[in-house]
């Protein structure tokens, strides 16, 4: 696991009317090769600033930013521009050239990089448009496309110079849920097939759950929690993280807090293989424990199947049952005790 992006003691503040307003408190962060790294936060938390520090659209007020072995913050202007070509970026509002066709938009970064051979440009554009499924729209203008199609053009454009890193700035926030899903699928397949590192910022936990490997939670300029998506999503520690998780699963939070429930309320988390085994019914039968199912869901975090059930347990031997469940690899938390 080699890190491709490293933030070392980076912080950022803006000068507003002669006063320093902090946007990001000093932080360290490593993003490793080939992962999809999510940064989640509410608007104003500093996530746009953070993602723009990677390609230096924003300069840090202090600290060092490394892409591979290159210290971005130390690069002179021409070298920085060359480095930026190795980093693709897509945007919430797509930011396509309205005056150019789809094909010309995708060809734009190639031309900026100095590719003069029209035949080579055409070939590469065809290849990219085929990858994002827009081959038949090459001659259209952005205004003739839907939001999802525009974002696909943005993705094709971002991939044109074969970057190592793709930055996604709220790439699905302007799209409807169905289009969001298809754009996320496309990003996930690009990550898999091109071995590209993806950094994305979002305010939706669902986006993180679907495609990210790891996540950092940003709150008022601080990274308050970070880790694998499964850990953060299934066992959120910080209040902000918990709110994000509840936003993604609203009905669950409501039922688990229903009054008048008898017994010990426990939350069981199954991950991976355990989700697919009949562990729960076997253990409960063996220990003579009755359970009342209060809330639950079985779903996936990226490719990892998981289940999370909130149960009220009644019976003589609940402790022994819990030990047996833990032994089977099930994570257990006592709720509201």
């Amino acid at each position: 696991m080699t890190s491709v992006i490293r933030f070392l003691d980076v912080h950022k503040s803006y000068r507003v009317d002669g006063r320093e307003v902090p946007a990001l408190q000093p932080f360290n962060l490593d993003i490793v090769d080939g992962e999809v790294f999510g940064i989640i936060g509410h608007s104003g938390a500093g996530k746009s600033t953070l993602i723009r520090l990677i390609n230096l659209l924003e300069r840090p007020s202090g600290g060092r930013i490394l892409i591979g072995d290159t210290e971005m913050t130390a690069l002179p202007e021409p070298a920085l521009r060359a480095q930026r070509r190795r980093i693709g970026m897509i945007f919430q509002h797509f930011n396509l050239l309205a005056s150019q066709t789809v094909a010309d938009n995708v060809a734009f970064p190639l031309r900026l990089a100095g590719e003069r051979d029209a035949e080579k440009v055409r070939e590469r554009v065809d290849e990219l448009l085929a990858r994002v499924g827009l081959s038949e729209h090459a001659g259209k203008y952005p205004s003739q496309l839907s939001g999802g199609q525009k974002q696909r053009v943005g993705i094709a454009r971002a991939l044109a110079n074969r970057p190592d890193i793709l930055l996604c700035d709220e790439a699905t926030s302007a799209l409807d849920p169905q289009t969001t899903a298809s754009v996320l699928d496309l990003l996930a397949s690009i990550n898999r097939e091109l071995k590209l590192t993806i950094v994305l910022i979002t305010h939706e936990m669902d986006v993180v759950r679907r495609i990210c490997d790891r996540v950092a939670v940003l709150d008022a300029g601080c990274i308050v929690e970070s880790g694998t998506v499964a850990d953060v999503f299934l066992h959120p520690r910080h209040a902000t993280t918990r709110r994000f998780v509840e936003e993604a699963l609203p009905e669950e939070a409501a039922t688990a807090q229903a009054p008048g429930v008898a017994g010990r309320v426990m939350r069981l988390t199954f991950r991976g293989g355990a989700t697919l085994q009949p562990v729960l019914s076997r253990v409960m039968r063996e220990h003579g424990v009755d359970f009342n199912l209060l809330a639950g869901r079985i779903d996936r975090i990226k490719d990892l199947p998981y289940g999370q059930l909130t149960l009220a347990l009644e019976g003589a031997d609940t402790d022994a049952a819990l030990v047996a469940l833990r032994a089977a690899g099930i994570e257990i938390e006592e709720m509201g005790a």
Binding site: N55, R84, M89, N95, L96, P109, L112, A113
Partner: peptide
């Protein structure tokens, strides 16, 4: 001209 389009060009390494 939208600021975002200019930002996109900068991100692509445009002078």
């Amino acid at each position: 001209v939208q600021q975002g389009v200019i930002e996109a060009a900068q991100a692509m390494g445009a002078s």
